[in-house]
Write a protein that binds this DNA or RNA. Structure first.
Length: 221
DNA sequence: GCGACAG
DNA sequence: ATCTTGTCGC
């Protein structure tokens, strides 16, 4: 993990599109990760009617899922929410929060898509390339792609397809509960990503990493 | 033109 | 994402 000191947020949508076009070729979706002993979850929340962006990071020991460290960062919101451009709104605060972490996670689970994105650069992929760290996209809903219905049993899955390409998987992490959209972020394959998400999920719909980061991003303990 | 649309 | 109390279902 190498945190850049020079992150600049685009001022226009055109500029953001150019950045995506430049970074999309750097995304790696083959396994290129160390044995995972530390998994992190990142999530973002807002305050003051969206004027402030609050990012949270939670690092857990793997596979025990015991909380090891947390950090939060609050920055002025710098980009509007536009489907397909979520990363430009959330990444600046996430990077600031990651700077405060004293231990380096081997894998990061992000709230949102990985390559299941029009340009194959969802927030998980974008963040992964920027900080050169393995990431997985764990989204609560669909951005693009189509899929068959997923059986109600925990562990059931269906490929997520776009333009004839498998870009992720729709995974039921809890019986009869809305499934999650999993896709490789960076330096990880889809099969491996699925395994890590399942191993990070216990009795709830969301992985423990995301649940803790989600709570922190909303200001609760 | 119309509908879809991560968080 | 966020605004918000009770409430239906397992």
């Amino acid at each position: 993990m190498k945190i850049p000191n020079d992150y600049q947020s685009p001022k226009t949508l055109e500029e953001a599109k150019a950045i995506q076009q430049n970074l999309r070729s750097q995304v790696i979706i083959t396994d290129q990760l160390e044995p995972v002993q530390l998994v992190a979850g990142v999530d973002v929340g807002f305050e003051d009617n969206y004027a402030l962006t609050r990012a949270a990071v939670a690092v857990l020991r793997f596979p025990e899922l015991e909380l090891v460290e947390t950090a939060i960062a609050i920055l002025p919101t710098c980009f509007p929410y536009i489907p397909g451009f979520l990363s430009f709104r959330e990444i600046p605060a996430i990077i600031e929060a990651l700077k405060k972490i004293t231990i380096v996670p081997h894998l990061i689970l992000c709230d949102g898509q990985g390559i299941a994105h029009p340009l194959r650069l969802g927030i998980a992929s974008h963040l992964g390339v920027l900080i050169d760290c393995p990431t997985i996209g764990v989204a609560k809903s669909r951005l693009i792609g189509s899929h068959e219905e997923v059986n109600l049993e925990k562990g059931s899955q269906q490929p997520l397809i776009d333009q004839g390409e498998t870009i992720g998987i729709v995974l039921r992490t809890k019986y009869k509960v809305k499934p999650l959209y999993i896709s490789p972020g960076h330096r990880i394959s889809l099969p491996t990503a699925i395994q890590y998400v399942l191993k990070s999920t216990t009795k709830y719909r969301l992985p423990e990493t995301t649940r803790i980061a989600d709570r922190l991003s909303k200001g609760r303990i």
